[in-house]
Design a binder for these strands. Structure first.
Length: 103
DNA sequence: CTTCTGACA
DNA sequence: TGTCAGGA
């Protein structure tokens, strides 16, 4: 019959920790450490299983790139914070540009 | 699958 | 410091 999936129900782009570990090529325990460090915040299902969304997986892959570049977890967390702040600034900038263009 | 502790590079 | 490993 159809391939039975893991704990995650029929949702869109939701992966179990084992799948994410294979995707990012890192141990499962490491992914849990990343979450503990605040690098990623996956959702939890009723059973307590981590539900990594596609966005989370993409973020983990980016973390792997930074680590590969020689950035430690502390640095990665800082980069993530900077990127979040940068996104906020870009949003404001876009709104300001649109306002100026409209005027 | 989850969390914890231990050990190694 | 970060990752892997085994046990509960």
């Amino acid at each position: 019959m159809a391939a039975e999936k893991k704990q995650p129900r029929a949702d869109q782009g939701v992966y179990a920790i084992s799948v994410v570990s294979d995707l990012v090529g890192v141990g499962e325990q490491t992914l849990r450490l990343y979450e503990r460090r605040g690098l990623v915040e996956p959702e939890r299902t009723e059973g307590g299983t981590r539900r990594y969304s596609r966005d989370d997986v993409d973020r983990l892959r980016r973390i792997g790139e930074l680590v590969d570049d020689g950035v430690n977890l502390a640095g990665v967390g800082k980069v993530l914070a900077l990127e979040a702040d940068n996104a906020s600034l870009q949003q404001k900038l876009k709104a300001a540009q649109k306002r100026a263009a409209d005027r």
